[in-house]
Simulated assay, not measured.
Amino acid sequence: MQLHRRTLLSAAAATLASMTVPLAGPAAAGADPGPEPPVEPGEPIFPRPGGGTRAIHTLNVDARAYLLDIRTGAYHRLPFLAVTLAPDDRTVAVEDVEGRIGVARRAALLRDGAAAVRWTTLPPGAVLWSPDGTALLTTTPDRETRRVTANRYDLATGRLRQTLVDFDSEGAVGWAADSIRYVVRLPGPDPEVPDGPLRYVDPDGTPGALLGTTGHIWDAHAYSPTRRHVIVEPARGYPFPPEPAPWQLPRILDLRTGTVVAAVPTDWPLLGWHDHRRVVRVAPPAEGLRTVLEVVDVHTGTVTRRVPAPGLPPYHLQLGSAAHLHGRAAALGF
Score class of each variant (00 low, 15 high):
Arg6Ile: 10
Thr7Tyr: 14
Ala11Gly: 14
Thr15Val: 11
Thr15Lys: 13
Ala17His: 14
Ser18Asn: 13
Met19Glu: 14
Thr20Ala: 14
Ala24Pro: 07
Ala24Leu: 08
Ala24His: 14
Ala27Lys: 07
Ala28Arg: 10
Asp32Gly: 06
Glu36Cys: 12
Pro38Arg: 11
Val39Leu: 15
Val39Gln: 15
Val39Ser: 13
Glu40Thr: 06
Pro41Gly: 10
Gly42Cys: 07
Ile45Trp: 06
Ile45Ser: 12
Pro47Gln: 02
Arg48Glu: 09
Arg48Gln: 13
Gly52Trp: 02
Gly52Asn: 08
Thr53Phe: 05
Ala55His: 04
Ile56Thr: 08
His57Met: 09
Asn60Ile: 02
Asn60Thr: 09
Asn60Trp: 00
Asp62Arg: 11
Ala65Pro: 05
Leu67Phe: 04
Arg71Ser: 13
Tyr75Ser: 08
Tyr75Phe: 15
Leu81Ser: 10
Val83Leu: 12
Asp89Asn: 15
Asp89His: 15
Asp89Leu: 05
Thr91Leu: 01
Thr91Tyr: 02
Val97Ile: 09
Val97Tyr: 13
Ile101Trp: 01
Arg105Ser: 13
Ala107Ser: 14
Leu110Pro: 03
Leu110Val: 02
Arg111Val: 00
Asp112Pro: 05
Arg118Phe: 08
Pro123Val: 01
Gly125Met: 07
Gly133Tyr: 03
Ala135Phe: 05
Thr140Tyr: 08
Thr149Gln: 04
Tyr153Leu: 07
Leu155Glu: 12
Arg161Phe: 10
Thr163Met: 12
Thr163Asn: 14
Leu164Trp: 12
Val165Ile: 15
Val165Ser: 07
Asp166Gly: 12
Ser169His: 07
Gly171Gln: 10
Ala172Val: 03
Ala176Glu: 00
Ala176Trp: 03
Asp178Arg: 13
Ile180Arg: 15
Ile180Pro: 08
Arg185Leu: 05
Leu186Ala: 03
Pro187His: 00
Asp195Asn: 10
Asp195Pro: 00
Asp204Cys: 10
Asp204Gly: 13
Gly205Lys: 06
Pro207Trp: 01
Gly208Phe: 00
Leu210Gly: 15
Gly212Ala: 11
Thr213Trp: 00
Thr214Ser: 10
His216Asp: 11
Ile217Cys: 01
Ala220Ser: 15
Tyr223Thr: 10
Tyr223Asp: 04
Ser224Val: 05
Thr226His: 05
Arg227Cys: 01
Val232Thr: 08
Ala235Val: 04
Arg236Glu: 10
Tyr238Cys: 03
Tyr238Met: 09
Phe240Asp: 12
Pro242Trp: 00
Pro242Asn: 02
Trp247Cys: 00
Leu249Gly: 05
Arg251Gln: 13
Val261Asn: 09
Val261Arg: 09
Val261His: 11
Pro265Tyr: 01
Gly272Pro: 01
Arg277Phe: 02
Val279Ile: 09
Arg281Val: 03
Val282Phe: 10
Ala283Trp: 07
Glu287Leu: 09
Leu289Gly: 09
Arg290Ala: 15
Thr291Lys: 11
Thr300Met: 07
Gly301Tyr: 00
Thr302Ile: 14
Val303Phe: 02
Tyr315Gly: 08
Gln318Arg: 12
Gly320Arg: 12
Gly320Phe: 03
Ser321Leu: 10
Ala329Met: 00
Ala331Val: 01
Leu332Arg: 04
Leu332Val: 02
Gly333Cys: 06
